[in-house]
């Protein structure tokens, strides 16, 4: 069965991501080897934790370069939650820390007075031209967010006080602020669409 490599970003809900990949009929394997991350036919960048420490860990492990190249080349990569935020240049969560810089944007915090963490199910509205993400309801667990779809990307949005980016797509790259692996049958089908597209791209 075809394999999906999951980047070992530290303590994340890696088992949930692996279970979703296995339910889709693929084998999941964890790795933090730069060569494997560069070469993987299909890669998941999961993310739980804080922007700064995880960005520093990716840099220290030599993974930041290979990841940034995959994103730039549009190779099959699924980034989840903090994984999406790590594509940005910086985050208000960890001032001074540098992300992968694939998105010319800074991750921001939700406005005061809102329920934070933004934890639970929210409606996702797919933008024009989205190939993976459709309208639906997804499970989120984030305190920070990206405000607008960057130039050159297609995107989906959700609303918490104001609209924010729920997902981004370009080539075979899919980045989700929500957790597709926890978003029920809708999320499972999204993962399966990405896997199918990734197989075409391979």
């Amino acid at each position: 069965m075809s394999e999906v490599l999951i980047v070992r970003t530290g303590t994340a809900n890696l088992a949930s991501v692996a279970a979703a990949v296995e339910r889709a009929g693929c084998a999941a394997r964890l790795s933090d080897d730069p060569g494997e991350v560069a070469a993987a036919a299909r890669l998941v960048l999961p993310g739980v934790g804080a922007f700064g420490p995880v960005a520093a860990r990716l840099e220290a492990l030599g993974l930041a370069g290979p990841l940034a190249r995959r994103i730039a080349d549009g190779r099959p990569t699924l980034a989840v939650c903090l994984g999406l935020q790590l594509l940005a240049a910086a985050s208000e969560e960890s001032p001074g820390a540098r992300g992968l810089g694939a998105l010319p944007a800074t991750v921001t915090r939700f406005a005061a007075g809102l329920r934070v963490p933004h934890l639970g199910w929210n409606r996702v509205a797919a933008g024009v031209g989205c190939r993976f993400v459709g309208d639906g309801e997804a499970y989120f667990a984030n305190s920070f967010k990206l405000d607008a779809v960057p130039e050159g990307w297609r995107g989906a949005t959700a609303e918490h006080g104001a609209p924010f980016v729920a997902a981004l797509e370009r080539g075979a790259v899919l980045a989700c602020q929500f957790h597709p692996e926890l978003s029920g049958p809708w999320g499972q089908r999204l993962i399966e669409r990405w896997l199918a597209r990734a197989a075409e791209a391979a």
Partner: peptide
């Protein structure tokens, strides 16, 4: 389970929590 899973009971340390997360808990 393709849904969020919160697990509790007897968690006394970060190491206890990590074992549950590695087993498949999300919270």
């Amino acid at each position: 389970l393709p849904l969020p899973l919160a697990v509790g009971g007897g968690v006394r340390s970060a190491a206890d929590a990590e074992r549950l997360l590695e087993a498949g808990a999300d919270k």
